[in-house]
Design a protein around this nucleic acid. Sequence first.
DNA 1: AATTATACCTAAGACTCGTAGGTATATAAA
DNA 2: TTTATATACCTACGAGTCTTAGGTATAATT
Lengths: 116, 116
Amino acid sequence: MNNGTNSQLLKGSLSVVILRLLEEREKMYGYEITQKVKELTAGEMAITEGALYPALHKLEAEGLLTTEIQVVDGRARKYYSLTKDGHREAVSRVSELTAFLQNLQTILNVGFKPAL
Amino acid sequence: MNNGTNSQLLKGSLSVVILRLLEEREKMYGYEITQKVKELTAGEMAITEGALYPALHKLEAEGLLTTEIQVVDGRARKYYSLTKDGHREAVSRVSELTAFLQNLQTILNVGFKPAL
DNA sequence: AATTATACCTAAGACTCGTAGGTATATAAA
DNA sequence: TTTATATACCTACGAGTCTTAGGTATAATT
């Protein structure tokens, strides 16, 4: 995951992003995921393929994703879908990450007094 | 940084947390930082010392922090403060991280329709 | 006397990620 | 026609960050 200038930020969130997107879309292929992230963040965030594909392979090896290859317009696409375990993990990891982000926000807002 | 069950989450935020806390407190020592994070997150988040001290040393080596040793109650404390560069970096990195978190939230909220 | 809290530190390994490559097809531009 | 861009997959290497698991030492508590 790449956020413009600072590229070494927030390791560990990529797999959660993948699982979260697949909760909404039934099945997606790698390239589609990269485009979806760009679209959602107005080009501010980009997933590199060197990170994405190993992450997808790992999730598949862990039994959270299954694959299915389709040829569209002469090009092979490898579609990924959540397994049952993948669904469970998606819910679990998203709520974990959300809790973490809230704690992080709390720390970043130290000393900030909101208007009443 | 440790978030209970999931310990391998969001690498890269520790240095920003350190810089942010030091923006508010003038000077802090390592142990104090670990306690402050626990306090702010109601015990949900804990910084491990094996991550904290190397991170502090690196920030010092980068010229963002300076140190000052004081003995209190027979125990030596190593106080860290922001340098001028440290202040600049704190502002810069906090806004970077905030932008990143917003993008991450957007992705996690895919498909979520807020009530109008 | 033993444990807990305070306070610092490091080494080894795990893990994630970016960079930089590689392969191949389809479409668009030059 | 040739070149570039978009699509679509992949891996190896190295950089960086973290956890685990130790170590040292003093003060306070049990």
